[in-house]
Design a protein around this nucleic acid. Structure first.
Lengths: 203, 203
DNA sequence: GTCTATATTTGGATAGAC
DNA sequence: GTCTATCCAAATATAGAC
């Protein structure tokens, strides 16, 4: 395979400038790819345009990614890393209910700040795309964090997390597809969380 | 435009066999298009394949639809008609809560019975697609029906319907993207409805 | 690693004969 | 209305020189 990171030279002592540059160029390509899906939609990713954006001819991209699918895969991994980081960065407030409320709003903003990324991460509408195991592992880690958060408000039943994720993903889906530039469903987020909390508390 | 229904001949007395046949062929084409998106995804619609499926050469399709977008438009209209019919066909049960619960489950089954259709109707991920006014009117009519249904259970506030649609669309989205062949989120539908009803009742 | 050149496929759409 | 023939554009991907 021609797309692997060049062999490290640490055995020779210094940094491997070659590998560093290779990784940096990969990053450049991925960044250009994000730019393009934000512009033309998730399905509108073209190797030609990506190549042009980074100042290459199309064939040169193949020195960094063996196929277009590999680029999607890298984007998915990067998106999941960002999501996990985001999830872990939400600070605990002074009570669990407030924390959950804030986490929900925060999630919606994460999704809306890049709707193509949200589509890739949470709806996976890319044709013939299967996430790599390591990316999926990150997604599971984020889910586990959510599970823990839900436990703090007393949501312990098996199906609770599915109701929660459905509710949140629904708010995001509606916001994206019916009011992409507004806040109509974002404005309902607190209501939805309160509804969920009341349900947990009173049943 | 070459794609309009041929001029009616009712002034000459009899039925217009020409127009009937034209409409029938249009239907055939749309049916083949549905078949194809069910197979290859919503974005995987190709005029060539549609033409072949109905026994035509590609250019002949242009006698029935002026462009690929026009086919999507017709599909959207047909999907909305089916949805409206479905919504109106849900029978009232002996109490409003039971009726709403049944309507929700019924909606999920409608969505899952053709996920490409659900994607077209409720997520609109087709590139550069804008629904025609008459299709949109049908969608609004279905929404109005839902609004009326929600009123019967006491959900009268402005944002209630948005919470409801978010919840339902979220259950469907999660079901489609994370468990397309199972019932994981379908199984949570009654829980979600009960949560919603409790929220309406107790606030 | 990057390029030129090219293969190959596939797509939407049009012109014009019949 | 349907066809043949064709155009044009875009896409992924490979071969091989430099």
């Amino acid at each position: 395979m021609t797309t692997e990171t060049p062999t490290a030279r640490s055995s020779r002592g210094g940094r491997d400038r070659r590998a560093e540059r290779h990784a940096a160029t990969r990053e450049e390509i991925i960044a250009a790819a994000w730019e393009q899906v934000r512009e033309h939609g998730l399905a509108g990713l073209s190797l030609r345009d990506v190549a042009r954006a980074v100042g290459m001819r199309p064939p040169s991209v193949y020195s960094y990614f063996e196929s277009k699918a590999a680029i999607y895969d890298a984007m998915y991994a990067e998106g999941n890393a960002a999501f996990l980081e985001h999830v872990l960065s939400v600070p605990p407030l002074d009570n669990p209910h407030a924390t959950l409320r804030h986490a929900a709003t925060s999630f919606m903003h994460f999704a809306m700040e890049d709707t193509s990324r949200a589509q890739l991460l949470f709806q996976r509408t890319v044709p013939d795309f299967e996430p790599s195991p390591e990316s999926y592992a990150m997604a599971l880690q984020a889910l586990e964090h959510t599970r823990a958060l839900l436990r703090t408000v007393g949501a312990r039943r098996k199906g609770d997390i599915d109701v929660w994720t459905a509710m949140l993903s629904g708010l995001v889906t509606q916001q994206i597809s019916n009011d992409p530039d507004g806040t109509r469903w974002i404005d309902r987020c607190d209501d939805a969380v309160d509804m969920f909390l009341a349900w947990i508390d009173t049943r």
